[in-house]
Amino acid sequence: MPDVSKMKKPDVKVVLLGDMHVGKTSLLHRYTERKFKDTTSTVGGAFFLKQWGPYNISIWDTAGREQFHGLGSMYCRGAAAVILTYDVTNWQSLSELEERFLSLTDTANHDCIYAIVGNKADLTDPKAQLSPNSDSFSEDQTDIVEDRTEPQVLSACPTPPASPTSLSGVVPRKQVSREDAMALYGRILRYKGLDEKSSLPADKMCFETSAKTGYNVDALFETLFDLVLPSILRKRHENHESPTVDLEDCRGSGKRVRSSCC
């Protein structure tokens, strides 16, 4: 067990929210351990401390089960970024983000950044079925996907597909389009009272990922880390302006400070 007194203090907090079985824990494992794990439902919450350059970022994985719902608000307190996660083959998981989880972010920072992430893209998208390390996956393919500049039409009230499966009843069908996720992002900005024109654009903050193959997982986390950098620098500046006393350093000095009261 690591020495708690030696653990580094996080500079900023990132929180994953979403319904159970959407793959939040698997996304975290894929990014931090570089592999896919079949996981059980998270109980309460857990966090991982990621060193990113000279900074320390705590990534909180929260439970999606109803009985742990109330804890989400506590975990979101002071968050600089929230990853709202859904399953691309499950329309209800997207709906739950707005109905159950969005209100939990009221305790996050006022300038919190929101990302909408559709996981399990490998079930419906051939591009996501390829591992980034695969011989058939090239940087040119990634550039083609990310440099697309086709206009996106946001659906004000999208309608879910009638069936989650194909005609064969075996292969899952994609129930949530990227446009649906972008429309949700716009509603989140309005819920937060933010100006859409001055906020980060929806096409940059909506991701489709696969924890199983690693598709877009690094891009998701690294994009967010870049975006929360101003929060880190501001927090460090505030701490520099109002320094606190480290009690461990005082104890380690071996000196007693005499009281100077008169």
Rank of each mutant, 00 (worst) to 15 (best):
Y86K: 04
D11P: 07
T107L: 10
R30Y: 02
S103P: 03
E99Q: 15
V12C: 04
K50M: 08
D111M: 13
M20L: 02
G118I: 06
G118A: 06
T40V: 08
F68T: 09
Q129Y: 00
Y55G: 12
Q67C: 07
F101P: 11
L84H: 04
T107A: 09
S26C: 13
S93H: 10
R65H: 07
E99V: 15
F68Y: 13
R100E: 14
L16M: 11
P10N: 01
A79L: 08
T85H: 07
V14Y: 02
M74T: 14
I59E: 01
H21V: 10
G118Y: 06
F36G: 15
D3V: 13
Q129H: 03
M20E: 04
S73T: 05
Q129C: 03
G64Y: 02
V82R: 08
S41F: 07
H110Q: 12
I83F: 05
A121P: 13
Q51S: 00
L28P: 04
F36I: 15
H110G: 09
E96R: 13
L16I: 12
L104E: 15
L49D: 01
H69C: 14
T39R: 10
E66H: 14
M7L: 15
E99T: 15
S73C: 04
R77T: 05
I59A: 05
K120E: 03
Q67L: 06
A80M: 06
A121C: 15
T32E: 00
S93C: 09
F36S: 14
W52E: 10
T39P: 11
S5M: 01
Q51P: 05
R34M: 04
Q129R: 01
K13H: 14
G45S: 12
V12Q: 04
D111N: 14
L49R: 01
A63K: 04
E96P: 12
D38Q: 12
L104N: 14
W91V: 10
H29I: 14
I83D: 03
G45Y: 09
S73Q: 04
L28E: 05
F101H: 09
F48C: 10
N90V: 00
G23A: 12
V88G: 13
R77Y: 03
L71P: 07
Q129D: 02
V12Y: 00
L104V: 13
L49A: 03
K24I: 15
V4T: 11
T40P: 06
W60C: 04
N119L: 03
K8H: 11
R65M: 08
K127T: 10
G64S: 05
V43A: 01
M7K: 15
K120S: 00
K127C: 09
W91P: 11
V15H: 07
C76F: 13
P126W: 12
G78H: 12
E66Y: 13
K8Q: 12
A46R: 11
R30S: 00
F48N: 08
S5V: 05
D61H: 00
D122V: 01
D11V: 06
S41K: 06
